[in-house]
Nucleic acid binder design. Sequence first.
DNA 1: CGAGATCGTGTACGATCGTACATGTACGGT
DNA 2: ACCGTACATGTACGATCGTACACGATCTCG
Lengths: 208, 208
Amino acid sequence: MSPTPSPATPSSARARGAGEPRGATRRRELLEAAVRVIGRGGIAAVDHRAVAAEAGVPLGSTTYYFESKHDMVAQALNYVADREAERLRTEAERSLRDVGPEALPTRLADVLIHAWAGDRTVLLAQYELYLESARRADLRPAAERWDSAYRELLQHALEQLGTPDPGHRARLLCAGLDGLLLDHVATGSDPGDLRALVIELIQRIAAP
Amino acid sequence: MSPTPSPATPSSARARGAGEPRGATRRRELLEAAVRVIGRGGIAAVDHRAVAAEAGVPLGSTTYYFESKHDMVAQALNYVADREAERLRTEAERSLRDVGPEALPTRLADVLIHAWAGDRTVLLAQYELYLESARRADLRPAAERWDSAYRELLQHALEQLGTPDPGHRARLLCAGLDGLLLDHVATGSDPGDLRALVIELIQRIAAP
DNA sequence: CGAGATCGTGTACGATCGTACATGTACGGT
DNA sequence: ACCGTACATGTACGATCGTACACGATCTCG
């Protein structure tokens, strides 16, 4: 684009973890850009040029880091699934420890609401993952990892509440929360309403 | 393609409703083809040629009936939303009339399961609509019509069950069912399990 | 410091896509 | 029977897309 070649960004200028390969940061930036593109316009909006522009890197980088467009989308959805699952786990660990049964439903609701807060596009991207995993077998494991992070969190909470058959109840609750969140994301409903509905759902599913 | 011009299919050979415009059948065929394409490969898979091939009509037809690709997708999603809402309404009318409160939960579950049976791709297309309506304002009304068909059905059933605040409960139940269905569609879980979960959810949400 | 591996980028090309449009066909009203 | 209008389709073109690839830059290790 510019007449001067200019070595762009030397990777040494960017922070890098200990054992990480050299290109890890750039790869992450591309994956996060891809997630934003998916969230904003769906998988249909993904192409090499759009992701490159979103990440602020040249077009060639996308073909360097990803074997194909298919691979790029798959890696992006794997990435966001693992990131959110991890975030959910640590958040739950931090907030749900040593909470009595009477305060747990509202506390659990706050953990969830907090996990869902922030960028709405990430949520939309996650549902794209879910839908796409119904069609593409190579996306199924990522969807499953994300799902089981939720299930484990909910099952653990239900056990703390003394709910019978917590594994089964967790499945029911997880589906209910998914539906609530999907409705919220699609319609942009009031977050306060969402919180109240989440609390009510938890209490109804947890009831013996 | 073929050397002989051949007038293809004379529209007089196809069935046509009373007051319908001449091209209504062809338009419907294209919309149904578009829904199948969306269900099979997502909105990303939609292009004029794919839809035309799926419908078994020449490429030119797609530009005749739709102003643009955007318009084609929008009409397809509007079409499927209205078709399913209508189907749900008549099905409920037929099956839920004069059912006692003790048999209603299972009967309601069967109505839902029956509405969801058949082509899995239609379900996937509906969730694509939901997600896409979060991004495109012109799709919101269709999503809302589809949603309110469910809400009204559920509210009516909850009223029959004597549940307090049926409007609010219907919203909760609708979200829960959505989540259950989404999980089922994505993972391809056992339909028998789904039925049991639906019944249990209905009973828990309907409980006073 | 030198060599080989890895990272990074600009450009180009064939395939595909959205859409316009010229042309032909069938129908409905008079 | 005739004509205007809606229906129907084959083809073509410019734009966009996925991807290949040559080449330069930078890092790592001895």
